[in-house]
Simulated assay, not measured.
Amino acid sequence: MKNVTWTVAFALMTLTLPAMAQDFRFTGTATTDDGGVIYQERHSVDGTCQDGVFRPRLHEVAYHKPDGNESFARKVLEYEASVLRPIVNFVQPTFDEAMEITYPEPETLAIKWRTPAGDSKQFQVEYPDNTVVDAGFDNLVRQNWQRVVAGESVDFRFLGPTRGEHYGFVIEPVTSNEVEADHVVQLRPTGMVLRFLVDPIVLGYNRNGALTDYYGLTNIRKNQDTNYTAHIRYSVDTYPDCELTP
């Protein structure tokens, strides 16, 4: 009888325990096609383990020049409401640029962008449930991990924040000369016009579901008019104590 009582008590106690806080740390090094280092990204993701799978809560990124101790740009992503559509706060002081993405109403997002030219632009954008914002694409890949590793495609909408619009995209398997990883996919626009204007982004993942490579257009400015296109190679500093993929 005592054993039964202790078993029931333990079960009730574990039901009331909160999800354990976890840390996920990784570093990315962005290089040009000839191997020159442009900058480094230092990622810190705080989250929880839910049903044995990591769920991000707060993601901070500090961007550093190769020889710089102080960051030249920063980004904060808050995933409280959705892992696909974080609140975004990005600043790039070198170009006096700042962007904020929030969600003032259900199914509506707001963009505030201070451009390098000194202009201030604002957008209100209605979106469907399959819309992805910023680094939410990484969580989309992991949410659909079994489909991705099986070579299936995943359709979604991707926010173009500087245009105040979202566009049709697809995650699909690809063979790449630039990226070598356990699993390689690309994010490709599906609209005919955008396919001619925007190059796909190629992503590499390891068997654990961690991003190893990003090859494509970045959010870091090369000059006032253009952003860097780079190959970013990631290394994990700290894994959470639960799986990254379901």
Rank of each mutant, 00 (worst) to 15 (best):
I232P: 10
L197I: 03
Y103V: 07
R195I: 02
F95C: 00
V179Q: 02
V8C: 07
R195N: 04
Q92Y: 08
M192K: 06
E107G: 00
T218L: 11
M99K: 05
Y214S: 06
G35L: 14
W113V: 01
C242K: 11
R157P: 01
V132S: 08
F123K: 01
P86W: 11
V193P: 01
N69G: 12
N208H: 10
H43Q: 09
Q22H: 09
L159I: 12
V184H: 10
D46G: 02
D241M: 11
Y239A: 09
D46F: 02
T32M: 12
H183D: 04
S153L: 02
E243K: 15
G151C: 12
Q92L: 06
R25Q: 14
C49A: 11
G35W: 12
N208P: 00
R147E: 09
W145F: 14
D225C: 00
E165H: 01
A117M: 01
H64V: 04
I101M: 10
A98C: 00
Q22P: 10
V141P: 03
F26R: 08
N206W: 07
K75Q: 15
R85K: 11
I232A: 11
H231V: 10
E126P: 01
L211Y: 09
H43A: 06
F24T: 07
P116G: 01
D33H: 06
A11D: 07
R163A: 02
I220Y: 09
R55T: 15
T245S: 10
S120V: 05
V154N: 03
A81E: 13
E41R: 08
R42D: 15
R55Y: 08
V148H: 06
S71L: 06
G28P: 14
A135K: 07
P104C: 09
N69Y: 07
V185T: 09
N130D: 15
V132N: 09
T7Q: 03
E80L: 06
G216K: 00
N139E: 15
T175N: 05
T190W: 01
Q143T: 07
A62N: 09
I101V: 13
L194D: 01
E178M: 04
L203P: 05
A9K: 06
D67M: 14
K222G: 06
D51Q: 14
L197W: 01
A81C: 00
D96F: 03
A81H: 07
Y103G: 05
I111K: 01
D138Q: 13
M99G: 03
A30V: 15
N227S: 04
V154K: 03
D67P: 00
V88D: 05
N208V: 07
Q40D: 13
I111V: 06
Q122T: 04
Q40R: 15
Q22C: 07
L12M: 15
G160A: 04
N227E: 02
L77S: 12
I232Q: 12
T229I: 01
N89P: 00
M20Y: 03
I232L: 11
D119W: 02
G118K: 02
V170L: 07
P106C: 08
D241G: 08
T218V: 10
L244Q: 05
M20K: 12
Q146P: 00
Q40K: 15
T32F: 05
V193Y: 04
P116K: 02
S176A: 04
Y205N: 05
G52W: 13
L194P: 01
E70R: 14
V125F: 05
Y228W: 15
